[in-house]
Simulated scan of single mutants.
Amino acid sequence: MTELYYDAAPNATRVVPPLHGPRQYPTNKPAQVYLFGTCVVDLFFPEAGMDAIHLLEREGIAVNYPQGQSCCGQPAYTSGYTEQARQVAKAQLALFEQDWPVVVPSGSCAGMFREHYPALFEADPALLRQAQALAARTYELAEFLLHVCKVELSDTGAPVKVALHTSCSARREMNTHLHGRALLAQLGNVERVDHSHESECCGFGGTFSVRLPDIAGAMVQDKTRQLIETGAHQVISADCGCLLNINGALEKQQAALRGQHLASFLWQRTGGAR
């Protein structure tokens, strides 16, 4: 599991997981995990959540899905509504009582758990300990498959060219672009193509796209133009918020290109159940 470290900022006393520090992964796969489905997966991409469960169950892991889960609190947190984010986060903390890994099919939501929950509860020692424990056992789905399950994927699909998109916070907090690239590289008939705007925001940014629609619209135009110019047949992403925005822009442009969640792509390419 992740080693915690003391924040080096002056007068800081809280213990937080390292933003980009190396993780120590379990030697063996756990028998059980929690899945935090995310609100976007639940409402707009339920197939991605189900395919994430299928991938984990195929590895011999029992998946537990607490029915009371909701939003991770990131929209409120990044909009400056810290108290509201704290209330949402507190409700999530109460759901993951067992010491099982929490797997999240979204790098941005996983990043909220791992990087920001401890800061929300630094004034409450009891909740801080819970937040630190949750942070230490939170994994983005691709990271968990790669480093904990140590999956070895066998591609059963036809040759295809794909472009990978990772959300800003997922990329910078959870390194999902590295995990996604490594999993795609295991698929012999999949060619991943780079695009010049890969590290740039798609313009969604949660509430950013609502508050500043003109800027957000220009950003997704840049993103989709670069994706189309790669000649890719498909866009793959581990974050459904970005997929909503990118697919919506592509549909408006009447482009043939569309995006799919990494979990669904992996499940379909590997032939489903073994």
Rank of each mutant, 00 (worst) to 15 (best):
R114W: 14
E115H: 11
E115R: 07
E115C: 09
Y117I: 08
A119V: 12
L120Q: 04
L120R: 03
F121W: 06
F121C: 00
P125K: 00
A126G: 03
L127K: 03
Q130L: 12
Q130C: 05
A131P: 10
Q132C: 06
Q132L: 13
A133K: 12
A133M: 09
L134M: 10
A135S: 11
R137G: 07
T138V: 08
T138I: 09
E140L: 02
E140Q: 04
E140V: 01
A142D: 07
E143A: 01
L146W: 07
H147M: 07
V148E: 05
C149S: 03
C149W: 15
C149H: 10
C149M: 11
C149N: 04
K150E: 11
V151Q: 06
V151H: 11
V151D: 07
E152F: 04
E152Y: 01
S154H: 14
T156F: 15
G157V: 05
A158T: 10
P159L: 03
V160C: 05
K161L: 14
K161C: 12
V162E: 02
V162R: 00
L164Q: 07
L164F: 12
H165S: 02
S167A: 13
S169A: 13
S169C: 11
A170P: 12
R171G: 06
R171A: 09
R172F: 15
R172G: 15
E173I: 14
M174Y: 01
N175A: 12
N175H: 15
T176E: 13
T176D: 11
H177D: 13
H177W: 14
H177A: 11
L178G: 00
L178D: 14
L178S: 09
L178E: 14
H179W: 08
G180W: 10
R181N: 08
A182I: 04
A182K: 07
L184G: 03
A185C: 04
A185Q: 06
L187K: 00
L187H: 04
G188D: 15
N189W: 08
V190Q: 05
R192W: 15
R192T: 11
V193K: 09
V193L: 13
V193G: 00
D194S: 09
H195A: 09
S196Q: 11
H197L: 14
E198L: 04
E198T: 02
E198M: 09
S199C: 09
S199G: 12
S199L: 12
E200T: 08
F204L: 14
F204Q: 14
G205Q: 05
G205I: 10
G205E: 11
G205W: 13
T207E: 09
T207L: 13
F208A: 07
S209I: 03
S209G: 01
V210R: 02
P213G: 00
D214E: 15
D214V: 10
I215W: 00
I215L: 08
I215H: 00
A216R: 05
A216I: 11
G217L: 02
M219K: 02
Q221G: 06
D222R: 07
D222V: 07
T224P: 07
T224D: 08
R225W: 13
R225Q: 12
I228L: 13
E229W: 11
E229C: 02
E229D: 12
G231P: 04
G231N: 00
G231Q: 01
Q234S: 03
V235N: 02
V235Y: 15
I236H: 01
I236E: 00
I236R: 01
S237T: 11
S237A: 10
A238Y: 13
C242D: 09
C242L: 06
L243Y: 03
N245G: 04
I246Y: 06
I246E: 08
